[in-house]
């Protein structure tokens, strides 16, 4: 993405995200009270984040690659299961990948 395209995307995406927030403040309450709508929104969040985990962990261009990212993700999962705070989880994953790469893993 060129710098200009990135800027356009930054501004447009920010406007979209703000518009969604504002709509929530303007619509009558009962419009969004439908449980199916609320649940679907929550599931969309889960699906997007899960897909992003997978893609960030193994995708490289159009290929699926197993490298230092996967063991790092496993370490992050263990840290999360032990209720480590967000920052600790992220740092542990980075350290794991950095260490494995220093030892010669891709």
């Amino acid at each position: 993405m060129s710098p200009t395209a990135t800027w356009v995307a930054v501004v447009v995406a920010s406007a979209v995200v703000f518009a969604i927030k504002l709509v929530g403040h303007l619509v009558p309450e009962h419009w969004l009270a439908e449980p199916r709508v609320a649940r679907t929104a929550s599931l969309v969040t889960v699906a997007l984040l899960s897909a992003l985990v997978a893609v960030q962990a193994v995708a490289q261009g159009g290929d699926l690659v197993v490298d230092a990212r996967l063991p790092a993700l496993a370490v992050a999962a263990v840290a999360l299961a032990l209720r480590a705070p967000f920052v600790v989880v992220v740092v542990l994953a980075a350290l794991t990948a950095a260490l494995l790469r220093a030892l010669g893993m891709a």
Binding site: A9, V27, L32, A33, V44, T45, V55, A59
Partner: peptide, 29 residues
């Protein structure tokens, strides 16, 4: 952006993840 996606895909993904904020409005307003 980091995985070389298109601007449209970046906007759409960010927007979809922002949908839940729209559901918070009726609760806090």
């Amino acid at each position: 952006v980091g995985s070389a996606g298109t601007p449209a895909a970046a906007v759409a993904t960010a927007g979809l993840l922002g949908v839940r904020n729209g559901l918070y409005g009726p609760q806090v307003a």
